[in-house]
């Protein structure tokens, strides 16, 4: 359920970067305040453990498919929410950088979807609540499973929300959510069972590890309040930005028009006019396309059409030229690359 760069708009990606960046800064501050030196190497190797654990798969009976450990919940149980969030963020960053799982712009989304919901919602509000004070195995299984499912479902919901508010994929929100929920119900169940299984294994073998981790977790109220506060802020920011994104499909262009004012608009109008006249001269395609192309050039005279023209160049002439020009540019780029390469090897 990693989001990819190609699917999100800069507005959504940027918002989520800011939100996740804030969460990382906040968690880093909290971890520093905990001042538990021992945690620095522990967090590091546990991050590597998540990768290592994912190399081992088990077979889900009767389905033929395999399951593995996702890791967010187990990290939260062993490290507490703040450190767990940092570890999750680092794991996702490495996946984005090296495996191109997700992508750089989508990294904020992925950290939020897979880290925030598990560490700051499912762990403190569900797992901790069910577990209470004692640590008996039955409760552990129930708590880890429910928290695992809810954490993943919220994450899946986040994926759907971010994708749809980006408006690049055509899937409607409802369909997307309906597609994601059942899949992640299954994934969440597996995750919860694995988490509780591993945690009870550790409790049997070395009980001090889990109890110590539980004690180190700061009292629930603090986590809850901040979690809710951040969640509210995120939802608000997200809502505002997705509204902005949908009202102004091309945020950057809109901002350019707004800031640089008329001159820019006129010059681009003139450019469009020039292009349009160029097209007139090159009329070798059905004139159907050029009728449509004309309004694109007349931004000033026809404001309503201009609004539409801010959307893509919906004209055949431009498209064919785009095709030809695109191929030429590609060729040029390849030639430049080859030239550079030759120079490099010669040097």
């Amino acid at each position: 359920m990693h989001m990819a760069d190609a699917l999100i708009s800069p507005a959504v990606g940027g918002t989520m970067w800011v939100v996740s960046g804030g969460l990382i800064a906040y968690s880093a501050k909290k971890v520093r305040e905990e001042a538990d030196d021992r945690k620095i190497p522990l967090m590091g190797v546990l991050g590597a453990f998540i990768f290592a654990a994912q190399m081992i798969n088990f077979t889900i009976p009767a389905t033929g498919s395999s399951g593995h450990l996702g890791g967010g919940m187990i990290l939260a149980i062993l490290l507490g929410p703040y450190s767990a969030f940092l570890v999750m963020a680092s794991v996702l960053t490495v996946q984005a950088l090296f495996f191109a799982d997700g992508g750089l712009l989508a990294l904020g989304c992925n950290i939020f979807n897979l880290g925030f919901f598990t560490c700051f919602v499912a762990y403190p509000l569900i797992y901790k609540k069910i577990i209470g004070r004692g640590l008996d195995k039955k409760r552990l299984i129930i708590a880890a499973t429910i928290a695992g499912v809810i954490g993943l479902e919220l994450g899946a919901f986040g994926v759907a929300l971010e994708t749809v508010s980006s408006g690049i994929s055509e899937l409607p929100f409802k369909t997307f959510v309906l597609l994601m929920i059942p899949i992640h119900l299954a994934i969440g169940l597996v995750e919860g069972l694995v988490t509780s299984g591993v945690v009870s294994f550790v409790i049997t073998a070395r009980p001090e590890i889990v109890t110590a981790a539980g004690e180190k977790t700061p009292p629930g109220v603090g986590v809850k309040k901040t979690a809710l506060g951040i969640a509210a802020a995120a939802v608000l920011a997200g809502a505002a930005l997705s509204w902005f994104a949908s009202a102004h499909p091309d945020g950057l262009e809109w901002a350019m028009l707004k800031t640089s004012g008329r001159e820019e608009l006129e010059s681009s109008g003139r450019l469009h006019g020039l292009l349009a006249s160029l097209q007139e001269k090159t009329a070798f395609l059905p004139d159907y396309g050029f009728r449509k192309a004309a309004p694109a050039g007349e931004v000033k005279s026809e404001p309503a059409a201009g609004e539409k023209a801010a959307w893509p160049a919906i004209d055949a002439g431009a498209s064919v030229s785009g095709l030809v020009g695109g191929l030429l540019t590609l060729l040029l780029a390849a030639l430049i690359g080859l030239g550079l390469k030759r120079r490099q090897t010669a040097a």
Binding site: D37, P41, L42, V45, F49, V194, F201, A205
Partner: peptide
């Protein structure tokens, strides 16, 4: 790999990981 064995593997890996963290520390 059955679920039971899987948990044993992962659990052992986790314990080793935590021991390693202690040694690194």
């Amino acid at each position: 790999v059955s679920f039971r064995v899987f948990i044993q593997l992962i659990g052992n890996l986790l314990l080793r990981t935590m021991d390693r963290a202690e040694r690194v520390y």
